[in-house]
């Protein structure tokens, strides 16, 4: 019983599908990057589900940002390490 509200995975797939035309018109190299962004949103579906935001796409955007920022921190750290090695 219940299950009137569609699951977070269904919602995600629907939102992603809504951008199919946008994706199709991108260059294939850009398509791959876009796919990566959606894949990173997928990493936080459970948090998005728990949030049950009225407009879930906002949560997906935030998840993409979160993963992007993680990557920036990782790269920063790496640059610092390389710098450290060079300076020695």
């Amino acid at each position: 019983m219940g299950r009137t509200v569609s699951s977070i995975t269904q919602t995600f797939l629907k939102e992603r599908a809504a951008f199919a035309r946008f994706r199709r018109a991108l260059r294939s190299s850009d398509q791959r990057v876009l796919d990566d962004l959606f894949a990173s949103a997928r990493k936080h579906l459970s948090a998005a589900s728990y949030a049950s935001h009225a407009l879930p796409f906002e949560t997906f955007l935030l998840s993409m940002l979160l993963e992007e920022h993680k990557e920036i921190i990782r790269l920063r750290q790496e640059v610092a390490e390389i710098r450290h090695v060079i300076q020695q």
């Binding site: 219940g2 299950r3 009137t4 509200v5 699951s7 997928r42 990493k43 936080h44 579906l45 459970s46 589900s49 728990y50 049950s52 009225a54």
Partner: peptide
């Protein structure tokens, strides 16, 4: 929207 959900499943 808040109530109609199942258990928490993580990635």
């Amino acid at each position: 929207l808040q109530a109609d959900r199942g258990g928490l499943v993580y990635q």
